[in-house]
Computed example of a mutant assay.
Amino acid sequence: MLNIVYAIIGAVFMVGMALFAFLKGGRSERIGAGAYLFAWFATIVMQEGSGFRGVPLGLFLIDLSLLGIFAAIAWRHRQSWPVWASGLQLIVVMAHIMALTGQAVSASSLYTIMNLTGYLIIVCIIVGTFYAWQERRAAELIGRNS
């Protein structure tokens, strides 16, 4: 029962972030939120197929591709939120590498790392969206006053 409550809270948080980014964010925030939403759905589908056992290679590839997208956004758009999101996503990728190389680490600690960094990445996207929205509003006000 409690797992369902956590899942619902996480889903509401995720969808709220995506709506905020799509409505108020700039191009990079929309790309980041869309990529993160896609990775989230792909991860759910991948976990359902594996029966939630272990850390499948597919999840590693999804997280690795999301790291590449965040790094590309950071490189192209020169904002600070994708740099933080890339760093957090790199922690997730390193956790996958630890599991795939057979390090003595419990699966629950790896999933905790992945979940906590996931929420922090959402916060990065929200903060980036807020600043992009405020910069756009300030530019509109300056444009009207000129």
Results as ranks from 00 to 15, higher is better:
residue 59 L to P: 03
residue 72 A to Q: 05
residue 42 A to T: 15
residue 46 M to P: 13
residue 68 G to W: 00
residue 47 Q to K: 14
residue 41 F to A: 15
residue 14 M to A: 15
residue 68 G to M: 01
residue 98 M to T: 07
residue 57 L to N: 15
residue 73 I to P: 00
residue 12 V to P: 07
residue 60 F to Q: 05
residue 96 H to M: 02
residue 7 A to N: 11
residue 38 F to I: 14
residue 80 S to Y: 12
residue 14 M to W: 13
residue 90 L to F: 10
residue 95 A to C: 05
residue 86 S to R: 01
residue 15 V to K: 00
residue 12 V to N: 05
residue 71 A to S: 07
residue 43 T to K: 05
residue 71 A to F: 13
residue 78 R to G: 13
residue 19 L to G: 07
residue 31 I to F: 06
residue 38 F to E: 13
residue 81 W to P: 00
residue 63 D to I: 07
residue 71 A to C: 07
residue 84 W to D: 04
residue 25 G to W: 00
residue 45 V to R: 10
residue 59 L to R: 06
residue 44 I to W: 14
residue 34 G to W: 02
residue 27 R to D: 03
residue 52 F to H: 15
residue 17 M to Y: 08
residue 52 F to Y: 15
residue 5 V to I: 14
residue 7 A to M: 09
residue 73 I to H: 02
residue 31 I to M: 02
residue 65 S to I: 11
residue 73 I to E: 00
residue 57 L to T: 14
residue 55 V to I: 14
residue 37 L to W: 06
residue 68 G to T: 04
residue 56 P to E: 06
residue 12 V to S: 05
residue 39 A to S: 14
residue 17 M to N: 10
residue 26 G to C: 06
residue 44 I to N: 09
residue 63 D to E: 08
residue 34 G to C: 09
residue 41 F to E: 14
residue 18 A to D: 01
residue 63 D to M: 02
residue 80 S to A: 12
residue 54 G to Y: 13
residue 46 M to A: 15
residue 54 G to Q: 03
residue 83 V to E: 04
residue 77 H to K: 06
residue 38 F to S: 14
